[in-house]
Nucleic acid binder design. Structure first.
Lengths: 243, 243
DNA sequence: GCCCGGTTCCAACAAAAGTTAAGGACGCGA
DNA sequence: TCGCGTCCTTAACTTTTGTTGGAACCGGGC
């Protein structure tokens, strides 16, 4: 993938949640990006490491996670093309969590130095990126609610719909059908349940004719029931630049 | 409380996690702040509302929370004097959660307009505040892990130690003794468990001689066991400006 | 084709957490 | 001082989730 296409994905996504000045777009288009390919299930940056670049997902899925003393892992967020999952490292230099690929992925790296300079030159872009990190935080808040208050089937439905609504924006939803390339183990880690229970929940939703999950693809069977179960309100994604 | 003291608390806290230029301190000291008093258990800003100011806690405890369709509430974070719990509203104008007082509180309001202008004039301050919102997000990540992966007793211990380490910075810890002014109902909402179960867990920790919780005060009985249970690593608080 | 490792799937049992219900402590205001 | 409301406390019972262990499936490499 040419690095132009990468930039385009970023701009398209930013545009969705913020209004951007034309000159700022030109600046973003001129950003030096170095592209690297990763296999599936590979660490990009690890908890405790000091980051010097931010990475823009050009292709593939990534996830952020933390592992605690007893070895259990919690997935904190899923990330799709056009996103910068470790933008926070710009000011929180030493990582407090892991960022890794779920699928084979193409990532574009932009150095912190370049970004810092750009921000000083164009405060509008700084605000754009700042807002992006704030939306990131808003998603964490909803994730807390999901894990803390919803029963397991609703948790799964909610994560699915969040992912779908974000994929929709980048044109990756085909009817009631979209990608969610996680193993049941990983789904458990995302929902705060065990893999065995994740399997039970998936089976239950399939048996109830709500949603089907098969080899990393989600197929919605009954949209009404699905939405009702998920209790999803997209406001927290802040996808509208209208404020 | 005079509004000077409020500013001092903010600066002291920011200083702890970032290096600040002297002129920037002067700017912050010159910020116009309007002070207001709130009773306990009162909403400051509500989910869905459009905020025009950010609020700085001068005195008292606050909490952020979200309430879902079935009426269950999840507490997302606790806030103490010197913090700006709704800084995110600067760029995410319509609130996606509630901010309310836990105790009677004194809050200082700073208008978004003032802050925006200040940021354009002094990018260093913008970065300071940006970093502050990133630490906020780091705390949400840890909260997800807490609710998602730790058994209930460890969750409680972890929230307690997080609160203690933050209170310590503002000189509010007296030996093994600090304030945590939540009802058991609220503790349950913070940990993602019911009030009944929260009570069970509190009792258990008391019986095991680990920690005592009495009328909003925490008394640590066995520091070693307490830390071991909590599995607490303060890195995510990013309290050191050394990066 | 066949083996191999990682998934998926499932059942039986154990543990953790939710629900319901009710008594007791405590502070506050009439 | 009494009465009321809020919070705390506890018990008994139910439901959800975790644990263990194993079988079936699937894709890739030999």
């Amino acid at each position: 993938m040419p690095s132009d296409a990468i930039r385009a994905a970023l701009i398209e996504r930013l545009r969705l949640s913020s209004a951007i000045a034309d000159e700022d777009i030109k600046e973003i288009e001129a950003l030096p990006i170095s592209v690297r390919h990763y296999p599936a299930e590979t660490a990009v940056v690890r908890d405790g490491e000091r980051a010097t670049d931010c990475c823009l997902i050009a292709d593939g899925f990534c996830a952020r996670s933390k592992t605690i003393a007893n070895g259990k892992r919690q997935i904190l967020s899923l990330h799709i093309p056009g996103e910068i999952p470790d933008l926070m490292s710009l000011f929180l230099h030493v990582m407090d969590h892991d960022l890794s690929t779920l699928t084979p992925a193409t990532l574009g790296f932009i150095s912190h130095e370049t970004l810092q300079k750009l921000h000083r030159r164009r405060p509008g872009i700084a605000e754009l990126f700042w807002r992006d990190t704030l939306i990131d935080a808003a998603m964490f808040r909803e994730w807390i609610v999901n894990v803390g208050q919803r029963p397991a089937p609703a948790r799964l439905a909610h994560v699915m719909i969040e992912l779908r609504e974000r994929l929709r924006v980048i044109g990756r939803v085909d009817g009631g059908n979209f990608e969610m390339p996680l193993t049941q183990e990983q789904i458990g880690e995302a929902l705060g349940i065990t893999a065995v229970h994740a399997n039970r929940v998936i089976r239950q939703l399939r048996q109830e004719g709500i949603v089907e999950l098969n080899r990393g693809r989600v197929t919605v069977l009954d949209e009404r029931k699905f939405q009702e179960l998920a209790d999803f309100d997209d406001r927290y994604l802040h996808q509208s630049p209208t404020l």
